[in-house]
Each structure stands twice: as C-alpha cells, then as structure tokens.
Amino acid sequence: MMEILSALITGIAQGSMIALIALGYTMVYGILKLINFAHSEVFMMGAFIGLFAITALGGTQAPLLAGVGGTLCAMAFAGVLGVVVERVAYAPLRGRGRGLSNTRITPLVTALGMSVLLQNLAQLLFTARYRNYPQLLPIEHTRKVIFVTAVLVMIGLELFVKRTWMGKAMRAISMNAEAARLMGVKTSRVIAITFVTGSMLAALGAVLFCLDQSPVYPTAGVVIGTRAFVAAVIGGIGNITGAMLGGLLIGVIGELTKLTPYSGLQDVLVFAALIAVLLVRPTGLLGKPGTEKV
C-alpha cells in the first residue's frame, strides 16, 4: 500500500515535470498546427546548459545561487535556441511552399531533421557520456520543488495566455492567422515568442528533471520528449490544461508500471494509453474540435 502511495507521489512529481515539457509541444501546435519534433532536443540542450551553469556558479557550495542562476541560464539559452530552430527550419517554409498538397508534411520533415541535427550536435560537442547533476537539494525536497514550480508555472502561463495582450494575440493567431495579421498582430513576432516561452518551459523542466535523479546525455530528449509529446496529445494537443492532465497521467502510469514485473513495458503502456484515448476521444481528453487553441 505504501509502495503504491509513494509511487503515486513520485508519479505526480514526474508527471508535472513532463507536463512542463508537454506545454511546449502544445503551444506550438496550437499556433502553427505543427508537431515541433525538435522540442525534445531543446529540452536536452537546456539540461546540458543548466548543468554547465550550475557547475560554473559553484554547484553544491552555493546551492541556491547555482540552482536559480543555472536554471535562468538554461532557460535563456533554450529560449534563444527555440527561436533559432523556428527561424531556420520553420519560418522559411511558412511563406514558401504554398500551392502544394504536402505543406503540412514538409515542416514535419524539417522538424525531424532539426531534431536529428541537434541531437548529434550535442553528441559532437558534449560527447555521449552520462553526466549527473550535483545534489543541490535533498531528494524529498526536490520532488516538492518540482511539483510546486510546475503548478506555479502552469498558473502563470494560463494567466499569460488568457489575460495579456500577447496571449490574446496568440489565441487570435491560432484561430485565424490571416485575420489576426490584418488586425495588426505581428504574426512572426508572436510565433517567435511562443517558441521562446515553450523552450524556456522545456529548459525549466529539464533542470528540474535532472536535479531529481536523472543523468543528462545527448539522447535524453528522446525518451522524455516522447512521453511529453504523448502527454500533450492525450490531454488534447493545443490545450494547456490538457497538457497538465496528460502529463500527470503519463507520470502516474509510468511509476505504477515500475511496481509490476513489466517495468520494461512502460513505454508500451504509455503508447497503448495514447491510442486508447485517441480512439475514444479523437481530439484528446480536453481537446474540443473547433475551440480556440493556444
């Protein structure tokens, strides 16, 4: 019984962190109708930069400074990287390629290409070695910090999207980009800001994730990225609350499978849950066709 309870708690912590990454997928999809496959690599890069910044800022000698400073560094870097990815791989295709039946597919290919590129770039720059974060916080506090941070960020994001002018512009673009542009919304800039926000959240999630227990390595993004992506889809891609819900669900499923002898099948279950949800509700748990999505 205690086992299940502790698995639930770990699962919720894990899940809220997955949700942070899922938000990046969801926001970009909401605006561009594009699955940003490079997002998981932004997560991984963020984790690396966070590690270097934390080590540079003193690591365990000054846990608070290193933790906060490192996280901010990682977020800033990831934000820039997100925009670079958008400008290099997606923006050129947005204006061009009209008049083609595969307009939706071409950005997906460049997205996958960027993902492969970044992953191998990381391997080239940082080598394939597994690196561990310094233990900045006792493990039981880490979980609390993760959960609280994730919830605060979600609330902040919800306010950002619902209450600010920029959030309104994002929602406008997701509804009708052409009309939004005619109304004076600078679509290009808003899209860039969406990428910055999503990537910063991914970096935050990355640092929290690695502080918890995980080593960072060039292909780290694949496993977590896949789960986050599934979480976003289960919740209803394009829906912020949905991403949170999906993340929690994935986290709990993952931790509960570890209790059974089939721990190797964790990802199988995750995907099975995904297909099951999509078959019952084709647009995810909270996704409503025709609603506004950011």
Binding site: A89, R96, L100, L117
Partner: peptide, 20 residues
C-alpha cells in the same frame, strides 16, 4: 555524430530550398 549532423543539415537545407 558528425555524419548525422551533415546528413540532417543537407536534408533541412534541401527541404527549405525545395519544399515540394
């Protein structure tokens, strides 16, 4: 890794220059 970086760059470049 270098090989994959080159491969991916070529692919992304080609896709941007000729999306169809």
């Amino acid at each position: 890794a270098l090989r994959m970086v080159i491969y991916a760059s070529i692919l992304v470049g080609l896709m941007i220059l000729r999306p169809e």
